[in-house]
């Protein structure tokens, strides 16, 4: 039976150097409910995002993705789950500089074990306005174009959950709106649920806050 929620998180605590750096009592995310993980720098947004992606597990508490307990399924299980169901847009984008735009997407499909789908891949690039730049190297693109490649790469495996880490930091209002519009539009078109980790309160006008994190000291209080 399919899980009712994409994410179910309860009483999660994560520590670094013996001190708690993240404490979350509860978070549930049903499919299709886009939203924000809001919090200032150092509040553990990225840590939580990485946990949701299965890149790490909490020291304490329960966390499941699509009904799978991320602590129980092990490293390989989390890799598989992430490949099949999660797309991530990193703050620094981290495109593979050695290969072309299209190859960045092909590689993402390959690493996820998905069958090649050239038509789908080119359609996706067309959707983000980069069909003409498919063979360009990331270094030949503008920052905005690189951001669109990162979004396309995150969606190329048709994930159920699209995570974006600080996608609008250091952007002016116009570009901030454009990036969120792009993420929302592409998530909708791909049937993915968008979760944005940000400290940028401007986004509150476009997406609801699902969870607001405080700094660790405040969390403890």
């Amino acid at each position: 039976m399919p899980a009712a929620n994409l994410i179910d998180l309860d009483n999660v605590i994560h520590r670094a150097g013996g001190h708690p750096i993240l404490r979350v009592e509860h978070l549930s995310l049903p499919p299709g409910r886009h939203g924000l993980l809001l919090g200032p720098s150092g509040s553990g947004k990225t840590t939580l995002l990485h946990m949701l992606a299965g890149l790490m597990v909490p020291d304490q508490g329960s966390l499941s993705l699509l009904g799978h307990d991320l602590r129980a399924i092990g490293d390989a299980g989390r890799d598989r789950l992430r490949a099949d169901h999660v797309g991530i847009v990193f703050q620094q984008l981290h495109l593979i500089a050695a290969v072309s735009v299209a190859d960045n997407l092909r590689l993402a499909r390959r690493l996820a074990g998905s069958a090649p789908d050239e038509k789908g891949l080119m359609d996706l690039l067309a959707r983000v306005g980069l069909a003409e730049r498919a063979r360009a190297l990331p270094s030949d693109l503008s920052q905005g174009e690189r951001q669109r490649v990162a979004v396309a790469r995150a969606l190329v495996n048709r994930p159920a959950l699209l995570l974006a880490d600080e996608p609008t930091s250091a952007l002016d209002d116009t570009n901030c709106d454009a990036v969120i519009d792009l993420l929302l539009e592409q998530a909708e078109l791909s049937g993915a649920t968008l979760l944005v980790a940000t400290h940028d309160r401007r986004l509150m006008s476009q997406l609801p806050v699902l969870l607001e994190l405080a700094k660790p000291m405040e969390q403890a209080a």
Binding site: A76, D79, D84, A108, G113
Partner: peptide, 8 residues
């Protein structure tokens, strides 16, 4: 990033 994309 390759790990994040699902590579073991």
């Amino acid at each position: 990033v390759m790990r994040a994309l699902g590579a073991g």
